[in-house]
């Protein structure tokens, strides 16, 4: 039984859940995700494991209510049970001593970023974290990230905190100051990952991005999560979700994410749910 042990609102649209899941907590590594179902005949949605405690037997998920299922999930409370929870899925991030690491993220991508930054830090890397948001109120996990990073740099679209602009602007600034990095991991909205990884790859930094295509089964069975990497079809659930950014065909990644946009909008209205965020 996957009982919700703790629920916490992080901002208008984002919640953090601590959920009893002893088997998954024991096995999970940085970069992995679970698939969740909250109602019968409902969708299966992938969510990153943001944190876990193997001995206490819980995992933490950070959920942004963007559509039907994530909105339904946001209505669950402490003591409620998650109908189905499967994982941990995907290849873990390859953690080793790279040297100077960049962890760049935005939106709920910081869930993954937090687990990866902690693991990189634990592996004795020097970690620079850059996170972005539209405004100060939408920044997530600031204190947590602060703890696992040697330095935390912030960018907001409206300039309400940190640098005015995007995470890519922050990176450009570091570059201009002559800083070098050995490794970068970028997790966030697709556009952000594309723009930023173009810069880091051009700077010769080995860069991983964590892709978040639409998924169904998460076991390599449906092909719905396929992405084109180095001109080959890869399935993000079993081959990813992280890929070397230099080979990713971003156009198809963006195209496929919008596949259900119209249908989803209809469901959203039916639910009387929260407004669509971006």
């Amino acid at each position: 039984m996957h009982t919700i042990l703790k629920k916490e609102r992080l901002n208008e649209l984002v919640w953090r859940y601590r959920i009893a899941a002893p088997k998954i907590a024991k096995k999970r590594q940085a970069g992995q995700f679970v698939i969740v179902r909250v109602e019968s005949d409902g969708e299966r949605v992938p969510l990153t494991i943001a944190d876990a405690d193997a001995s206490a037997g819980w995992i933490e998920l950070i959920v942004q209510a963007v559509g039907h299922t994530t909105t339904k999930m946001s209505q669950l409370n402490e003591g409620d049970v998650i109908l189905d929870l499967m994982g941990p899925l995907g290849h873990p991030t390859e953690i080793k001593k790279y040297g100077r690491c960049l962890c760049i993220g935005g939106g709920v991508g910081v869930a993954a970023l937090y687990s990866i930054a902690s693991a990189l830090k634990a592996a004795e890397n020097e970690v620079t974290t850059i996170v972005g948001a539209r405004n100060q109120n939408l920044l997530l996990l600031e204190t947590e990230l602060e703890k696992v990073s040697d330095r935390l740099l912030i960018a907001t679209d409206d300039g309400s905190k940190g640098q005015h602009g995007f995470v890519s602007d922050v990176f450009k600034k570091l570059q201009a100051q002559g800083e070098h990095f050995d490794f970068a991991i970028i997790v966030g909205p697709v556009m952000m990952m594309k723009v930023t990884s173009d810069l880091t790859v051009a700077a010769g930094i080995k860069t991983l991005v964590s892709l978040n295509p639409i998924m169904i089964d998460g076991t390599g069975m449906c092909g719905g999560c396929r992405v084109c990497v180095n001109n080959e079809i890869k399935f993000a659930c079993v081959d990813g979700p992280e890929f070397d950014a230099s080979g990713v065909d971003w156009d198809t990644v963006m195209q496929r994410l919008n596949a259900y946009h119209d249908v989803e909008k209809k469901h959203q209205c039916k639910l009387n749910g929260l407004p669509h965020d971006g």
């Binding site: 088997k23 998954i24 096995k27 189905d84 929870l85 499967m86 994982g87 941990p88 899925l89 076991t219």
Partner: peptide, 9 residues
Amino acid sequence: TNFVVGKTA
């Protein structure tokens, strides 16, 4: 159910 051999164990 929801138990992926190779992953969950």
